[in-house]
């Protein structure tokens, strides 16, 4: 059974339909990369999956459980939406760390607040907090940040901040971790360290959806690639097909223009 089933997601802002019926599914441990030109709806799709936007149509199911169905959307309460969000994690282009907390506190904060909702929190407080602390430290360690746990975001480089953001998203053990152009705000050297971390997550079979412009990385790390254009999935398949030998003319044109601009801006 697929871990994620997205069916016919539609989203409009005012009069423009930004997502025109997006469907795909994802198996446990797969990495899906989404490519496409600016304005094609990639960010909007990730925001719909994380319920930062409410789709106007379609459904989203995780592990066979329907989390969202546009037909029943009106009756959803804020608390249900909150629960649904926990199935997904999202790493933003601009990191969005909380500046007044250290790296470790950033990673632990949400878990601590969730732990308080457990009925036996009072009795097991120390044990629960110790667990959270250990997990947060292990994650930061895995991100190569064991020496920066007590640093505040402004004391970290962009690449380090993004790795803290990844640890923060992983701390709640989401079923699917989404990335929205995680390296677009970074210098090339820093891009490298973040991509390395994402690749190691792929090696550990973390289910991920990655919106990216790093074609070489996408080819390397993905199980499947989707090319989006004008709010639609134009082509979907293994990276060897979509990125190297696309069937669709539009995909071909996108990749060509991409390689051209690559040549102009490249070193």
């Amino acid at each position: 059974m697929a871990i994620l089933d997205v069916k016919d997601i539609r989203k409009r802002f005012g009069n423009t339909e930004v997502l025109k019926g997006i469907s795909f599914s994802l198996e446990q441990g797969q990495v899906l990369s989404i490519i496409g030109s600016s304005g094609s709806g990639k960010t909007t799709l990730l925001r719909c999956l994380n319920f930062l936007e409410t789709p106007d149509g379609g459904s989203i199911a995780v592990n066979g459980q329907v989390l969202f169905d546009a037909a029943a959307a009106a009756s959803r309460r804020e608390a249900d939406i909150r629960r649904s969000r926990l199935h997904f994690g999202l790493v933003f282009q601009s990191f969005n760390l909380f500046p007044q907390y250290t790296a470790l506190e950033n990673v632990m904060l949400a878990g601590r607040l969730l732990a308080k909702e457990q009925p036996d929190y009072k009795a097991r407080k120390k044990e629960l907090l110790d667990q959270l602390d250990q997990r947060a430290r292990a994650l930061l360690d895995q991100m190569g940040l064991s020496s920066r746990m007590d640093s505040y975001p402004h004391q970290l480089s962009g690449g380090q901040q993004q790795r803290v953001a990844i640890a923060r998203a992983l701390a709640l053990s989401p079923d699917i971790l989404c990335f929205d152009e995680p390296t677009s705000a970074l210098d090339p050297e820093l891009t490298h360290e973040v991509l390395r971390v994402i690749r190691s997550l792929a090696d550990q079979r973390t289910t991920m959806i990655i919106v990216t412009h790093e074609m070489a990385f996408a080819r390397d790390v993905s199980s499947r690639v989707i090319f989006m254009d004008g709010g639609q999935v134009v082509e979907e398949g293994p990276p060897s097909q979509v990125l190297e030998d696309p069937v669709q003319e539009r995909t071909r044109r996108f990749l060509e223009s991409y390689h051209q601009s690559d040549r102009f801006t490249g070193p």
Binding site: L52, R83, R85, L90, N96, F98, L113, A169
Partner: peptide, 24 residues
């Protein structure tokens, strides 16, 4: 973006205001 990061982490709007926004 910070509020959205909080929402995605399952925080309530009240928690985001008191734990993230207020001190800033």
């Amino acid at each position: 973006g910070q509020q959205e990061a909080g929402l995605v982490l399952g925080m309530t709007r009240g928690q985001i205001f008191y734990r993230v926004t207020l001190l800033q």
